[in-house]
């Protein structure tokens, strides 16, 4: 597989936060989920990729080219979509597109019309008049119309109702099928269980996991137990124990499962994240 994006030892310090030696790479045509709690550094990482913020150190290479030296060429092949931003809320979509179109050599008007129709977007509407899901779709339509090969999506499903989320996830899957590479930051882990091939897990500025989704899920087991039920010698090996409605739950390394005396089950991505955060 070709690496679309390679990040090595990315560091960025703020007075109250530090992105600490983050390294990962993205495979072509795959959806990579970027998870972590609020404030873990997901947006700082994504913004570093696009030079919105200046990393203190580290290297970022897109398509094996240094970002700083080939910024404009790389941006022609990138699409950035962020749920938190609504550009020019009072301008018509047509006006925004008219301005955006000339910047891209590979703009495909036919594709743009196709996505407008597919996403039921009306050009005479303003972003203000669109739901959050429709805003994301418009930004996606822009990105796809200039032939973006890599889509960087910053919490695209945040604040959407379940149906709109499902609809967007289907679009992402279809785009990945077409060969687009997607880096998808979110804290809604169930979205990634439905779509992601790979998982990057960031906690307090450090990348704790970079694995395939099945590999990441298979690395842990979840045990649920009542007070005093866990033998004393196992207490220190449980990861991120916490209270549940019926007692307690904690993660366990899957490799230790066979010796553990209590029943365990496969945890969800969310359960893994919660317990790892508790442990951290």
């Amino acid at each position: 597989m070709n690496s679309i994006l390679t990040v090595k030892n990315l560091c960025k310090s703020y007075p109250s936060f530090r992105l600490d030696n983050v390294s990962f790479s993205l495979e072509e045509g795959k959806i990579t989920g970027f998870i972590g709690r609020n404030g873990a550094g997901k947006t700082t990482t994504l913004h570093s990729l696009l030079s919105f913020v200046h990393p203190d150190s580290g290297s970022i290479r897109f398509w094996d080219r240094e970002y700083d030296e080939h910024e404009l060429e790389i941006k022609q092949r990138l699409g950035f979509v962020s749920a938190g931003m609504s550009f020019y809320a009072k301008k018509k979509l047509r006006q925004i597109t008219d301005v955006t179109r000339p910047f891209y050599h590979a703009w495909n008007e036919e594709a743009y019309r196709k996505y407008l129709s597919l996403f039921s977007l009306e050009e005479e509407k303003t972003p203000d008049a669109l739901s959050n899901g429709m805003k994301i779709k418009y930004m996606l339509a822009l990105a796809l119309s200039h032939g973006a090969e890599l889509l960087i999506l910053d919490e695209p499903t945040s604040g959407l109702d379940p149906l709109s989320r499902e609809e967007l996830l289907e679009i992402f899957l279809e785009l990945a099928n077409q060969g687009k590479t997607i880096l998808f930051s979110t804290h809604i882990t169930s979205d990634l269980e439905k779509t992601a091939d790979n998982i990057l897990y960031l906690s307090r500025g450090r990348l704790l996991a970079d694995d395939s989704l099945p590999g990441f899920l298979a690395a842990y087991r979840l045990c649920e137990y009542a007070e005093g039920q866990v033998p004393h010698e196992w207490e220190g090996r449980l990861i991120g124990p916490g209270r549940t409605k019926n007692g307690f739950s904690a993660l366990l390394q899957a490799s230790e499962r066979k010796d553990f005396p209590l029943p365990c089950r496969q945890p969800s991505l969310e359960e893994i994240m919660i317990h790892l955060e508790k442990e951290d």
Binding site: F52, E71, L72, K75, Y88, F103
Partner: peptide
């Protein structure tokens, strides 16, 4: 933010 996503310096 919009402008920085465009292929411009």
């Amino acid at each position: 933010t919009y402008s920085l996503t465009l292929p411009v310096a």
